[in-house]
């Protein structure tokens, strides 16, 4: 029983991170109909920004490790990632707006490889120990072991999801986002500046990925330039599982993936956990391509 509860807690905190990344995939797919391969590397940049900014803050005598300092690091990482996301869209994807999906796909793969390999050159290949940016403490409840970082992850993820929901549903720009995602041409006809909305979407998604990177770093103490690959793919699978284009779907899919992964890790099949994730992806694409909460699209002939 304790074992199960422990797994639930681990699954929740991992799932929350996947959910944050998955939202970015799904939002970008919503407005541009393509899979942003580079998203997982923005996630990596989030972790590295946190690493360097907390070090810089320490040097200026502004000790991170306190709660406020931690929040500041989080905000800096999110802002940096938002900027990177907007920049990527601007430089690499926007010139391709009218081109085939294949061209955009290849470009996205290129951007992803560039960030990874550029990251290896700039940050070095070796894993780095991620600092304690939030005060860290371990609670023991009966047989349960809960790290305060896991609570922070859940808290931050919940707060961000709520904020995102509010932005998308309640603000003007959120409404415009939904309009573009529903029908980009029609949205531009009613006077919505689609390019601005697309930039905003990239910024928003990348900020969430950045936050995901910071939270991931806190729970898995070392970071390296290729760290985005595996969680990125899982998050993508989560987005497809939930129904790509659907925000609640991405959150749900992230949670499911988190639980499945912690579940598999506990068994002797743990080395196959990536394979299991891919098996889920292949299964969902074949049997329910619209995902759990998505809608089927019919191709116009």
């Amino acid at each position: 029983m304790t074992e199960l509860l422990q797994q639930v807690i681990n699954g929740l905190s991992l799932g929350a991170i996947y959910a944050l990344i998955a939202l970015g995939y799904t939002m970008v797919y919503g407005v541009l109909r393509f899979i942003n391969f580079a998203h997982s590397d923005v996630f990596m940049l989030g972790a590295f920004t946190a690493f360097y900014s907390s070090r810089a803050m320490g040097r200026w005598g502004f000790a991170s490790g306190g709660f406020l300092g931690g929040l500041l690091v989080l905000v800096i990482s999110m802002a940096a990632c938002a900027a990177v996301g907007i920049l990527i869209e601007r430089l690499a994807y926007r010139p391709l707006r009218k081109r085939s999906t294949l061209t955009v796909l290849i470009t996205a793969i290129g951007v992803s490889l560039l960030l990874q390999n550029g990251g290896q050159m700039v940050f070095g290949v070796n894993p780095k120990a991620f600092p304690n940016i939030f005060p860290s403490q371990t609670f023991k409840l009966g047989g349960l072991v809960i790290n305060s970082n896991q609570l922070v992850v859940l808290g931050v993820a919940l707060a961000l999801l709520t904020a995102l929901h509010w932005i998308v549903q309640r603000t003007r720009i959120g409404t415009a986002m939904r309009a573009v995602s529903f029908n980009a041409t029609a949205a531009s006809l009613v006077g919505i500046d689609t390019n601005r909305i697309i930039s905003f979407t990239f910024g928003l998604g990348s900020a969430l990925a950045g936050a995901g990177g910071v939270l991931y770093g806190m729970n898995y103490p070392s970071i390296e330039p290729l760290m985005g690959n595996s969680p990125g793919l899982k998050a993508f699978i989560a987005a497809v599982l939930g129904g790509i284009g659907s925000l609640p779907g991405a959150a749900l899919g992230g949670m499911v993936l988190g639980f499945v992964e912690t579940g598999v890790s506990g068994t002797r099949w743990s080395t196959y956990r990536d394979a299991v994730a891919f098996a889920i992806l292949i299964g969902i694409l074949l049997f329910r391509p619209a995902g759990l909460l998505g809608r089927n699209r019919i191709e116009k002939v």
Binding site: A92, P95, L96, R99, T103, V104, I106, T107, I109, G110, V111, S112, L113, L114, Q116, N117, G118, Q120, M121
Partner: peptide, 20 residues
């Protein structure tokens, strides 16, 4: 050798934009 993948990735991006 370390730059190889960086060059590959830049090549991909530039090609797609300029000469798909």
């Amino acid at each position: 050798g370390d730059y190889r993948m960086v060059i590959y990735s830049l090549l991909l991006i530039v090609l797609m934009i300029l000469r798909p």
